[in-house]
Amino acid sequence: MSDEVARVLAAAAQGVFPPADGTVTVVAQPNERDAGVLAFTAHSVVFTDEDPDWVRAELAATSSDALAAAMNPVFLARMTARCGRHMNTIDLLTVADALPGPPPVALREIDDPEHPRVARAVKFRDGVRVWAADGGMVVLGRGVAGRWEAAVEVDEDARGRGLGRDLAVAARHLVPGPAVWAQQSPGNARSVRTFQAAGYRPVGSEALFIAG
């Protein structure tokens, strides 16, 4: 296990990124659960316990474009086959600094392990906590390399009133660490706009290799 991914993420949260030199860094997984690829501007980080020499050979064979090789679908498919995992989507990775004071929306902490959003969260995060608002909820937990991650859910009949943005901001007040991360599918423009309106900064893209 390695803490290199945690160091890369902590630096990125402060606006310090790997060198934009067109290369790929291969590091060990931070834990048994978390494996995948982080892509920043002209630099990618593959975190896996697979043989680094095999990973580099596959990257070279996948694409002549080193800038895109680590997020090339062919490489990602070979990686998931190699490690016996699967992946969902390539997400936009965003981060926001924690904020002091109470959240901008009334919340109550709940214990609802059957809720689909919560059930999904516990597959990818540790220490999951959930708060409900009138018309939605916010979920916090420790995800990749121990980073704090947020997800929000807004009921269909409560949309269009800025609640999603308020819940995303609420996560910034609730997070016990210095920053909170969130992933959005790039095609989900509504979610992308919501988190950016709440002050989350795009830092790169992320593909996770999921066990089970």
Rank of each mutant, 00 (worst) to 15 (best):
A77L: 09
A77I: 08
A81Q: 00
A81V: 10
R82G: 01
C83Y: 00
M87C: 09
N88G: 04
T89G: 08
I90Y: 01
D91N: 10
D91W: 12
V95F: 06
A96T: 05
L99Q: 09
P100F: 15
P100D: 15
G101C: 09
P104Q: 11
P104G: 11
L107Y: 05
L107H: 08
R108N: 10
E109M: 14
I110G: 10
I110F: 09
D112R: 06
P113V: 12
E114C: 01
E114L: 03
H115Q: 08
H115S: 11
P116E: 12
P116I: 07
P116K: 10
V118K: 04
A119S: 14
A119W: 10
R120V: 03
A121P: 06
A121Q: 09
V122M: 03
V122D: 10
V122A: 01
V122Y: 10
V122G: 00
V122T: 14
K123A: 08
K123M: 07
K123W: 10
K123F: 02
F124A: 12
R125F: 10
D126H: 05
D126I: 00
G127A: 09
V128I: 12
R129N: 03
R129H: 11
V130N: 00
W131E: 06
A132I: 03
A132S: 15
A133V: 02
A133H: 05
A133Q: 05
D134G: 12
G135P: 09
G136Y: 05
V138C: 06
V138D: 09
V139E: 04
V139Y: 01
V139M: 01
G141T: 05
G143R: 02
G143N: 03
G146Y: 01
G146V: 02
R147E: 07
R147H: 03
R147F: 07
W148V: 06
W148S: 09
E149P: 00
A150S: 14
A150Q: 15
A150L: 14
A151I: 02
E153N: 07
V154K: 05
A158W: 13
A158N: 10
